[in-house]
């Protein structure tokens, strides 16, 4: 069995920043009062482009609108989580939003905004099959949250062929 390593983004962050030679001041929380900060939105918008490829509208304006609506739903989803979960997610996002964390942990070498869909998918795929439990945990957190928020929207149901609940 794989050696278990628990999620501890505080420790991981300290290590990453130490390696990168910066200070902890480089990290900005991912959530403030339960809501996404600008850096969190940049991360999740990019993740959505990768995870939802083939589901998102292909045309640019329509895709931007779908992503904007997705981020609002995701923000609602995160705001409903208990404090302990929010705190963990806030640390996770802070870590992967920072340039050293993005590069060493996610394996993405350009800014989240600038990364291509293919770059993001390659990084996600690498975390998915990583031998480090922490990278696998990050893959699951990003993927699951993205899918949960996107497919909560009745407009997304058409791509699933789901007619919605029966009116009663």
């Amino acid at each position: 069995m794989q050696r278990r390593s628990f999620l501890n983004f505080g420790l991981a962050a300290t290590a990453v920043i130490a390696v990168a030679g910066g200070g902890l001041a480089l990290l900005h929380p991912g959530l403030e009062e339960g809501h996404m900060t600008a850096s969190a939105k940049a991360v999740f918008k990019a993740v959505a482009r990768g995870v939802l490829q083939g589901v998102l509208p292909a045309e640019h304006t329509a895709q931007e609108a779908a992503l904007a609506a997705h981020l609002v739903r995701l923000d609602d989803t995160l705001a409903a989580f208990p404090c302990a979960t929010q705190s963990e997610l806030s640390q996770l996002i802070a870590l992967i939003a920072s340039a050293p964390g993005r590069s060493t942990i996610v394996g993405l070498h350009s800014d989240w905004d600038a990364a291509s869909d293919a770059d993001i998918q390659a990084a996600m795929q690498d975390m998915r099959h990583s031998s480090l439990a922490m990278r696998q945990q990050i893959f699951h957190a990003l993927r699951d949250l993205t899918n949960a928020a996107y497919f909560a929207d009745p407009q997304a149901w058409t791509s699933l062929g789901y007619p919605g609940p029966l009116a009663i």
């Binding site: 083939g54 998915r128 996107y150 497919f151 997304a156 149901w157």
Partner: peptide
Amino acid sequence: PVIFASTLPGHG
């Protein structure tokens, strides 16, 4: 939809 999409493996 939510439970199905967030439980399946893979992405993209």
